[in-house]
Amino acid sequence: MSLVIKKYCSIVTDRINVDGRTVFTPDNQDGFKKFARAAYRHFQTDYPKFFKMDSLSKLGFLSVEVLLKGENVLSKHSIEKTGLILTNASSSLEIDEKHWDTIRDRGQYFPSPSNFVYTLPNIMAGEAAIRHEFRGENTVLISKAFNAELIFNTADLAFKTGALECCICGWVEQYGNKYESLLFLVERSEHENEEGKSEEDVIFEPSILLKIYKRERAWKN
């Protein structure tokens, strides 16, 4: 069984790429909140719940949204076997600090459920699962930096055990105006020859994940 990257989408500070080609850059660079709103409008998204989300969930939502644009994943795979494996470094720290600010002073103590619910990084996976009706295994793993081995191993084993047939996996990191994401749509190869090798596909393996990550970030440096 070989796994292939059907498509990938990156968001590296104000630039959205799909398969390495830029599909969106806003007119001005005004930080994450304005960027998120501009991208939402650009892709003609109609999902008002987006505006209630915290920034991390917005970034995850937009990344999955653009990745799946034009892809009808659920026509090929069962919803029970389509899952998400997301990684990041900061967990949900930005909204954690916001929640903390509402409780630090007992004189002004007003914790809010609309903040608190987002103080878990896997809420972004939950938001994407609701939007696209994915019922498969989903998880958030924390790593200090983009970790190709971690993403690959976790997804690969979910395929090998039979838990997943289709997986959206990668990196969704945001804290304040520092944000970046890189998501891969991974499936089994449809073009396997007798040796199990495929000629047309981008093979899902750690070295390729890392290569793509470095290339997608290169313009920033």
Partner: peptide, 30 residues
């Protein structure tokens, strides 16, 4: 073992138990 998602609500469990049912079925199968 296995995981699943309700794809229903971020802070409330599914009313039907569909998601947990799927995880249990999958865990028993595996």
């Amino acid at each position: 073992g296995a995981g699943s998602n309700d794809a229903n609500h971020i802070s409330g469990p599914s009313r039907t138990g569909e998601g947990l049912f799927l995880a249990i079925e999958q865990a028993m199968k595996l």
